[in-house]
């Protein structure tokens, strides 16, 4: 058997196990190409790998989504995660990337929108821990124009109060909420006005500050000043250009 064939059937075996539809399955092709002893059968040998495959990945995701775990309950959430891992297998060297598409998968599965948004929120809280803390701009930096949106800023505009759902660990009735999440040494999140979220998203997409303000509609100069003062105080900006980070 060629190396790539061995690896393909081995991986398929791991992926197909532990799902209800194919419990305790061992393919004939793999069975015919592995050894066993009387006390340690082929089935049991593959089960060691299959258990590690699923347990390692599911446990990692349970840690990444603590509030979804509480809301859905351990069994339902684990079942969801097994399906997710099956349809979105890890393609990265680090387990830390594993949860990146969970919210998308939940949308594909037509799960309630509030839970999908909560998954997005929890993913951002998790992923931003991996970002370097970027220095805030000083007054001199700002005067020189060295003021940029941090790489570790995420904007979430939801029809549900995701911050409140996260903090109270329960599903709440619909209420629009715009949230900015940022790494300021600790991961912080702020509810902002919808127009402020539009400005941050526009800057994130590459717009100049002027164009980003225009994208938010007809704002008074006082309002714009108020938003930017909040952005500064909340640590959304840095003096470090993206290329140097």
């Amino acid at each position: 058997m060629l190396l790539k064939d061995w690896q393909n059937i081995f991986y398929q075996e791991l992926q197909n196990r532990n799902l209800e539809r194919s419990k305790s399955f061992i393919s004939e092709e793999l069975k015919n190409n592995i050894t066993e002893t009387r006390s340690f059968t082929k089935e049991s040998r593959m089960q060691v790998y299959a258990y590690a495959f699923w347990a390692r990945q599911v446990d990692s995701l349970l840690d990444d989504y603590p509030v979804l775990l509480v809301i859905l309950g351990k069994k339902a959430f684990k079942d969801l995660l097994k399906d997710y891992i099956y349809y979105y297998p890890s393609t990265n060297y680090t387990l830390a990337e594993l949860g990146r598409n969970l919210s998308k998968f939940m949308q594909d599965e037509n799960m309630p929108k509030e839970l999908c948004d909560l998954a997005t929120f929890e993913w951002h809280l998790f992923e931003l821990e991996y970002f370097k803390v970027e220095a805030r701009p000083t007054a001199t930096d700002i005067e020189k124009g060295d003021c940029y949106l941090k790489a570790s800023v995420r904007v979430l505009q939801s029809d549900f109060p995701v911050i409140n759902m996260y903090e109270e660990e329960k599903v709440l009735p619909a209420k629009m909420q715009s949230v900015v999440i940022v790494n300021n040494g600790t991961i912080e999140y702020y509810e902002v006005e919808p127009e402020a979220a539009v400005i941050i998203k526009a800057i994130q997409s590459g717009a100049s500050f002027e164009d980003a303000i225009l994208a938010a509609g007809d704002l008074s100069p006082e309002k714009v000043q108020e938003y930017f003062q909040d952005f500064m105080e909340s640590g959304f900006f840095t003096s470090e250009p993206l290329a140097t980070r």
Binding site: K4, Q7, N8, F10, Y11, L14, Q15, Y49, A52, F53, R56, Q57, P89, S90, T91, N92, Y93, L95
Partner: peptide
């Protein structure tokens, strides 16, 4: 640890 770009996160 993986094949066809998929990673098992195990030492196989």
């Amino acid at each position: 640890t993986g094949v066809l770009t998929k990673n098992s996160h195990d030492l196989l």
